[in-house]
Simulated scan of single mutants.
Amino acid sequence: MATLTPTMPATPAPLLDTELLRTFVTIAECGSFTRAARQVFRTPSALSMQIKRLEETLGRALFVREARRVRLTPDGEILLGYGRRLLKLNEEAVGRFLSPALEGRLRLGTPDDVGTRILPRALTQFARSHPAVQVDVAVGRSSELTRQLDANELDVALITAGNTDSTGEGGQLIHTEPLVWAARDGGVAAQREPLPLALAGPNCVWRGMALAALDEAGIGYRIAYTSEHCAAQEAAILADLAVAPFPLSLVRAPLRKLGADSGLPPLGEYHIALRRRRGAGQAAEALAEHMAGAFRGD
Rank of each mutant, 00 (worst) to 15 (best):
M291C: 11
P196T: 12
R96L: 12
R38Y: 10
V188T: 14
D150K: 13
L106I: 06
W206N: 06
V251D: 04
L214Y: 14
L80R: 12
A232C: 03
T164F: 03
G268R: 06
G297A: 02
L102T: 04
A127T: 05
G109E: 01
L158D: 04
F63S: 02
E169M: 13
F97W: 14
G259P: 08
G208T: 09
R141C: 08
L20S: 15
D215I: 02
I118T: 10
A288T: 03
P202C: 03
S45R: 14
G259N: 03
Q50C: 07
V156C: 02
A253L: 12
R84H: 08
T34A: 10
M49K: 14
S166Q: 15
A28M: 09
E144K: 08
V135A: 05
Q282Y: 07
A242R: 02
G268H: 07
V137D: 05
R35V: 11
D261A: 14
N163P: 05
V137Q: 05
P196Y: 09
V64D: 08
A13S: 14
A183L: 03
R65Q: 11
G279F: 09
E144G: 08
P44F: 06
R22S: 14
V156W: 02
T3W: 08
A10S: 15
R278Y: 07
T26V: 04
A292D: 05
G186R: 13
F33G: 00
E169W: 09
